[in-house]
Structures are given as C-alpha cells and as structure tokens.
Design a protein around this nucleic acid. Structure first.
Lengths: 235, 235, 235, 235
DNA sequence: TATGAATGAGGGTTCATTCAT
DNA sequence: CATGAATGAACCCTCATTCAT
C-alpha cells in the first residue's frame, strides 16, 4: 500500500506533465506550424526544461502526432456524444457545421492548418495518423448522410464523399478567409447560411418539386370535382 | 548587329536560368513545402550552384514569392482567357471547377498546400502576395456570380464569398482526398458532380417548392380529416 | 545540502565556460579584429563546439561587446583602485601613463585596435558601448585634471579634452610604433619621458618662470643690500 | 603615328578607369573599412562591372594598398611642397598640425581608421606599405624637428619619435572624438591649441627655469641657515 | 577591353537531440 | 525523474574571384 501510495502520485504527476506538455505543444504547433515550432518554446510554455520533453515523447514528430491525435479525439468524442440526440438529417448537418466552425475558430485555425497544410512535410507517419483520425471525425456525418440517402432524404446520384468534401471544404475556406481578413466571422449566421447552402446541394433536386407539382394538380382537380359534386355543403 | 548578337544570347541565357530556377523551385516548394525546401536542392534541380540561386533571387523567400506569383499568374491568365467565351453562368461555373481540378491535380496539389497551409508561417509579406493573387484568380468566378445574382440566376440571400468558399473549398477537399488515397480521381465525373452539387446550392431555393411542401402537408391533413368525417364516401 | 552540491558545480561549470569563452574571444578578437574573427576559431580556442558559443552568447556581436566591456571594466577598476592613493597631479598622470602603456602592451595592442579601429564597422550598438566604457576609463584622469586646473596646477587656457587626447593619443602612437617595429619599448623610460613631455605641455606656461624670475630679483636685491651692509664678512 | 593615336587614347582611357576605380575604392574603403567594403560596391561606384575591377587590380587587397599609397602620396606631396616655404620650427609644426587635421576631417576620418585600425587585419603586406608611407609622410616633421633639436630649439632629452607620436597621436584622438560626437571640431582653434600644447611640450624645458628653481632652493636653504645662525636679529 | 555569369569557400546561426548528473 | 549542458548537422546567405565571350 505504501508502494501504491508512492507510485500513484508519481503516475499522477507524470500524467500531469504529459497533459501540460500536450497543452503547450498544441498551442505552439497551432501558432507556428510544425516546422516553425521549436521544442524549446514548447518546453518553456509547459514550464519544464527542454530535455523533459524528450523524457515523455520520443521526439518532436511523435509529440506532434500525439497532439493531433488528442485534438481529433476531443472533437470526435464531442460529436459522437451529441449526434445521437439530434433528430433528423437536417438537424444533424446543422449541428456538424456549427460545431466544426466553433471548434476551429476556438483553435485559431492553427490545428486545422497544421493538419491540412503541413502534415505532408512531416512524414508519412503523420499522414496516416491524420487520415485515420479524420475518418473517425467525419464518420458521424458520413453515417447520417448514408442513412438519409437510403431514406431518400439526400440525393442518390452523388458519392457521399463528395458531399462530405463539400461540407468540410466550404467551412475550411470560410475560416481561411476569416484568418486572412483578421476578423472573426459571425458564426451563427455563417453556420445557418452554410447549412442552407449545403442543404440545397445535397437534397434531391427537382424530384420532390415535380412530385409536389403533380400532387398539387391532382389535389386541385379532386377539390374541384368535390366542390362541383356537392356545392350545397359549402353554402 | 554583332553587339546585339553578343548581348542577346546573354540575355537569353540569363532568362533561361531564371526560368529554370523557377521551375526547379516550384518543384521543390511543391514537394517539400516552404520550410523543408532547401536552396541547395533547388540549385541542384536547376543544375546550378547554390550561389547562383542568390545571383538571381534575393533569397529563399523572394524566390518562393515569385514562384507563387508565377503560378497564380499562369492559372489566372488561363481562366481570364477562357471565361469570356463561355455563355451562361452554369457553363462558367462548370468550367471554373473543371479547370481548377485539372490545374491542381497537375501540380500534385503541392502548390495548393504551399499557398494555403504555409503562407502564414513564412511571414506577412508572402501572405499579402497570396491574398492579392488569390483575389485575382477568383475574380472571374466572383464576377460572374455577381452578375448572375443580379439577374436572379443565383440566390440573393447568400454572400458571394460564401458561395466562392463553397466552390473552392469543396474542390480542395476533393483533391486532398485524392492525395490521401494516392489515386487520381475521375476528373470529368467529379467535375460534373461537383458542378451539379454547387448548382443546386447556389440557385434560388425554389420559393414555390417550399410553399408547395407546406401546402401538401396542409392538404394531407385536410384529406385525412375529411376521410375520417365521411368514411362512407370511399366505400 | 545535497541539492546544493548538485547545483553548485553546475553553476560553477557554466560560469567557467563563460569565462573561458570570453578569454578565448578576447584572444581571437584581439588577434584578428572583429570581422576576421570567426566563431569557429573562438570555439576551438575555448575547447568547445561552435554551437556552445551560441548557448552562452546571443551572437558574435554580443560576445564582442561583452569582451570589450569586460576589458574596460578590468582596466578601469584597476585605475579607480590605485588613483586615490596617489598624491599630487604629477604622480597621478605619471601613473595613468605607465598603467596604460603596460596594459596595452600586455594585450598586444589588439584590444586597443579593436576598440579604436573597428568599432565603427560593427554597428552603432558597439560604438555606444565603447563610448560609455571609454568615458569611465578616462574619468579618473579627467577628474584629476579638472581638479588640478582649478588649483592652478595645469593651464586653464586649454580644454580638458584636448589634454586627455594629448595623453592617450601619444601613447597610442607609441604603442603603434612598437607594434610596427615588432619590438617592445622600454616601458619605464618611455613612461617617464612621456610624462615629462605631457607635463611640460599641460602645466601653465611662464607662470612659474615669471614667479621665479621675480623671486630671483628680490633675492639679488636683498643679497646686494646685505653685502653692502656687511662688507667685512666677505673679505 | 596612327598606332600612337590609337594607343594614346587607350592609355588615357585606361588611366581614367584606374583613376575612377581608385577614387571609388577610396570612398568605399573609407566609409566601410576594409573588411566591410565589397568589390561590388566599389565597382558600382566606379560605374563599371565587378569584373573590371580585377582587370586593373590583382584583387581587393592590392586595390586597397594602392588606395592607401595614393592617399599617402597626396598628403605627403602636399606637405613636401609647402614645408620648405615656411620659416621657423614653430611655423612648420603649426602647419603640419593644421594640415593634418584638415586632411583627415576631409576624408571623414575613414582613411585614418583604415590605416590605423584595420591595416593589421589585411595582412603583413599592407602593414609594410603603411609603415613606409607613414615614414615618408612624417619625414618633413621629423626633419624639421631634428634640425630644430640641433639648433637647441627643441629639447634634446627626448627621442624624436616620441615627439612625433605626441603630435600625431593627439590629433588622432581629437579626430576620433569628433567622430564619436558626430560634430566637426573648430579646426582653427583646435589647431592653435594643439600647437601651443605641443610647443610647450617639445621646447627645451626652460633651461633657465630649471636653473632658477635650483637657485631658489639653494637660497631658501641659505636663508634658513642664516636665520638659524643669527636668531637674535629677528627677535 | 569589358563584362555577364557562375561559383567555391566559408561564415553565423538554429535546433532537435543526447547524456551525465 | 528532471535538467543543465553540449553538440552535430544543416541551412541560408555573402563575396572575392574566375572565365568565356
């Protein structure tokens, strides 16, 4: 027990160090990108010596990989927790968009740029990690798109991937613009507008319009006949 | 004349070197990104000594800026040359998408990643160059979107920028996917599909469609009640 | 205590490195001048790798500045410690001259050349440091000159600065000559001679001569009268 | 004759190039010092290509040597032309001082710093050239000092070199001060004052003054004894 | 002769990483 | 375990100098 008591705090302390290092590293990688981030700065931000970074992580690359993994884990977990509570494809897409915009803005877009732009310069190891993480992160959306397509709520003449790219790609550019302009976008409004645009894109085109038009004509016809057959009822 | 003959080849040679250096630099920057690209490698690819690079360009950053400017210049010029010959907003958007996809695939996505992901880490100088170049490149699309919106061909309840982000963002993710998958997408099909998606998104969201949907629901409700009130009619 | 024992050697070692680096740097800067001195050579002389130089000093310039500061500090401290014990302006000037000659010869004139000749080529930062250090170093002499001038011991028709320039300038050229000739001057003799020369230059001209002349006349008169009053004594 | 006609202009043109290059080189070496001066800048100032510099001079060092030689030649020639017309050692020293101050100020002190401070960093070749040139430049002063010493007009208990160092050294520091202060000194006044100081230093330390001082001491001694021998007189 | 062009040699500086304490 | 200390390996950039034209 005394051994446990001694070990447990150590583990806890150790865990604390790791957490703190990851926090600092995410900060630095976000701000400067992978290449420009220095282990020295990360150590400083974490309040430890540079050597300590290497006590807990094999190297700069491994640290970065962990940072990215953790980040994806966080945002994926959040999504996975919230999505089941939402009813209807429209609500889900709306949530995904809003959630993504808020998340990326909160991180100053840095993580996003890290993942998208610099992943390739670090090495294939990182690339595969990113691919896998991204798959999980987009899974909730993909799943509900797939379901909705089966239900005929989204068009069936498009690959799901294309719809996903449409959704996430749009947001990325919106955020990129906001970085360039140095001003934060109106998230609520942007999310609504994007949702509307995306909705128009992925819902079956015309099909419903035509069906409805036909339906309207039938109903009108029916009504007309009804009224002619029994005019006394309405008087 | 003999003077010209002596001078001309020099100029030509010099110009050749610059061209060759820019070609090599674009290659290297594309492959490795800005930070990982080395002047040594660029020189090697261009078949000259490292010092020669600095004879023609003030430094690595200036060289990179020129590479980006030239790249944008090329693809912008092409767009500007072709766009006027196209009739109708749909044709133009279709062309922009196809052209962009082809261009980026040809460059192995490297230039795109360079421009989007690393601009921020190099310095504000590069950022402003990119911003300006990007503005020119997207201008043809923006112009025709603006015109179309006036004509009522695209919806008026969305900022043009959002539509632009939708278009270019989608493509970027499509390309990013293709990089990740290590396989080239079917450009023609993808372009068509993307165009269709985008078209659905940006065209006016059929006011009548919504009205009809509401109408149908009311009618159905009414019919239901009618049928319940007078079951004898159906028999 | 065990913590102290562990930490103390580290500090001591670190301090030792700095001292050693400064020693090596002074050597190299003295020998080659600022521009020709290389951090590689300094590192080699200090017995460390080149990178270590940059662990302790921000750069070549900062290292050089520290070298100059330290050098001035040493020679200034020595002066300031000895001067108060000397009585009389003549003794003080004599000491300053001797001290300066010995100091500069010991350093092989290199530091002097560094300070005088190359300060301007390194940048304004170094220049201002040198100016300030030089002010302190020459202050003891300036102070005693000022005091002596008030007391009428040095001429009042000359700016103090001019006298200072006379003193230090002479020595510099003497040393420069010795460098050129590749042989060490007889310091004692040179110091004495210089002191004599300088003394003649800065003491009030004529004043004493006139006073003495007047004194002589009075005495002669007195003697004459005495002799006349008691002629028998001399016979 | 036609050959001559063709050659002569060529020689003249060639000479012009050399002159222009030397002028530009003196300018650049003066401003930046030897190490910081670049052949590129010299070529630009001379209005020729960099390669041309090497057509006329074996290299940077040789060019610098020539610049220094020429500079010394100019100022030496001027001195040698003027000195014979001056009567008296005082007038000559006065002229030398004034001339030197004016010359060095005109060159912005750059040549002086080049010669004094950086000569050593260029190589022994330059050092010997400087030594020789300096010898010639100071010869007129040395000659007249030697003559004056024979005539008893300057003190005979000091080496001539020391007097020379006193004279030139003082001026150098005066000029160095003016550089540091960023303001031009009042040349006329400074020259007069320096001359006066130097004159006091090098003229025989009044033989009569010393004799008188000795005499006074004797007399005082004598008076003291007299007073002691005949105390009754004073009571 | 004059030069455009090219470069070898080297310099200062950075930084991830290692290791003894 | 934490770290002070040290460094190897690069990298960007400069510049005097050469040479074919």
């Amino acid at each position: 027990m005394s051994a446990l008591q001694r070990v447990a705090p150590r583990r806890a302390k150790s865990q604390l160090r790791i957490t703190e290092l990851l926090r600092a590293a995410r900060e630095v990688f976000s701000e400067h990108g992978y290449q420009q981030a220095t282990t020295a700065l990360i150590a400083e931000r974490a309040g430890v010596s540079e050597a300590t970074v290497f006590t807990y992580f094999a190297g700069k690359r491994e640290l970065c990989i962990q940072v990215i993994k953790d980040w994806y884990d966080e945002i994926s977990t959040e999504l996975e927790r919230e999505m089941p509570h939402l009813q209807g494809i429209h609500a889900k897409i709306s949530f995904v968009i809003r959630h993504h915009l808020i998340t990326l803005l909160a991180d100053g877009f840095g993580m996003c740029a890290l993942v998208l732009g610099e992943g390739r310069t670090v090495g294939p190891e990182l690339s595969s990690v990113i691919t896998e993480c991204a798959r999980r992160y987009t899974a909730p959306l993909m799943d509900c798109l797939a379901q909705a397509r089966e239900d005929g709520e989204v068009r069936q003449d498009m690959p799901l991937r294309l719809m996903r790219d449409l959704i996430y790609g749009s947001m990325e550019h919106v955020l990129w613009d906001s970085i360039t302009d140095q001003k934060r976008p109106a998230i609520d409004q942007t999310a609504e507008q994007l949702t509307a645009l995306v909705w128009s894109a992925i819902t079956p085109p015309n099909a419903s319009l035509e069906a409805l038009t036909r339906f309207r004509d039938e109903v009108r016809q029916a009504l007309l006949q009804t009224q002619q057959a029994a005019p006394s009822h309405s008087s």
